[in-house]
Design a protein around this nucleic acid. Sequence first.
DNA 1: ATGATATGTTAGATTAATCGAACAATCAAG
DNA 2: CTTGATTGTTCGATTAATCTAACATATCAT
Lengths: 230, 230
Amino acid sequence: MSLGMALEDYIETIYLLGGEKGAVRLTDIARRLNVRKSTVVDALKRLQEQGLAIHERYGDVMLTQKGVELASRVYERHITLYRFLSDVLGVDDVTASREACDLEHFVSSNTTSRLKKFLEFFNQCEKLKDLINTEFKEFLVYGRIPSICEKKEVKMITLKELKTGEEGVIKKVGCDASIRARLLAMGLVPGERVKVAKIAPMGDPMDIIIKGYHLSLRKDEAKCIEVELE
Amino acid sequence: MSLGMALEDYIETIYLLGGEKGAVRLTDIARRLNVRKSTVVDALKRLQEQGLAIHERYGDVMLTQKGVELASRVYERHITLYRFLSDVLGVDDVTASREACDLEHFVSSNTTSRLKKFLEFFNQCEKLKDLINTEFKEFLVYGRIPSICEKKEVKMITLKELKTGEEGVIKKVGCDASIRARLLAMGLVPGERVKVAKIAPMGDPMDIIIKGYHLSLRKDEAKCIEVELE
DNA sequence: ATGATATGTTAGATTAATCGAACAATCAAG
DNA sequence: CTTGATTGTTCGATTAATCTAACATATCAT
């Protein structure tokens, strides 16, 4: 019952025009979408049948609650695609915009949310952003993988084996469910950098620093946390 | 004249079935696309009119040269999208495959080639791959940006100012066109790591190592190359 | 070689999306 | 209040993509 891509375009357009200037006129829609007015009348009729829009003869066009919901979902897909094409792939604005218009009707909500997450990650992870904005862009032009891409050799050991003053990045928290939950809750999640501050005489407990906070860990716990040394 | 998405699906299907088992039968196409045989007859007629396929009554279906070209272009888009959805975003196989089928009809060749480049970069740049496969996947689950993402403070200086034994990553080759071309040709491209091996008594020339090769650079040249220190 | 089964074709109908042409309502400016 | 200009509606037609039902041809197995 997914409405067909043309109709999706109509609600999206109504939604956007509504935001730009209160009352939406049929003619505005026609102009925006480059179709004849008669076509719009038809579309509006079908939209009305689906309970998505309201349009009384010679009157303004409005979206119903349901219509607004659908429209904003479609629009979100549009924006997400646009941002990805433009910011990550570096596609020019016009193409990105036009293409997002077509693609928006076909990306699933699962993919959309992953793409959104990806963009969020992209925007917050300086390292990624840098890699894309400089190295990838260079790659697009020169076609060669910069040596900065090479992965440095890494050693995997458990947190227990780290010595005082050493640092590592958590790769896996492999403990039993209950312990694991507690450790994760304390901030010991994969990807975090840990540093050993001090180790008690008997090697138990050990004092570690993560995200600036001190934590005390027992040998048993440290044993099942895998870390990566640079 | 871009053929309509349904017809694109037909040639793509014929192309793939042809690869799987020599002769392509109308029924195979119908089964694969989940449509009635009569629908396929119709599609085939239109494909024939466009000079993309050949189908004689009760005979096998074949693509013309032109048909094969178009089909492989569509298929390439499909594969590219599939790989991106699956490998980078981590969308499950079934969804990725289904979605690629829809999207393939709308991505421009410009976007496709950028996406291909992106995947190529992704596959060859260990650092990126790692970032996506571990940190991004973690982010999808835990929703937090790992500290590994933080960009280390970098100092930008010119290559001339590096001392013997020091290393840096080339960020920009800002020399005049002719010198620039020569430097780039020697492998001094942005993204590469350089190390200073030796500096002659008067500071000119300097001996650097890039990608394992020694190069000799004059002060003038080194002066306009910006490098980043870690 | 002769049916039964699988394959292929035709014809007629439907639905979504469009168009153009002709007609109808509204409104703003005298 | 009349009258263009603008805006909106109706109608009939077209195209792509589908379907169902009925009919036609091939092929394989005995």
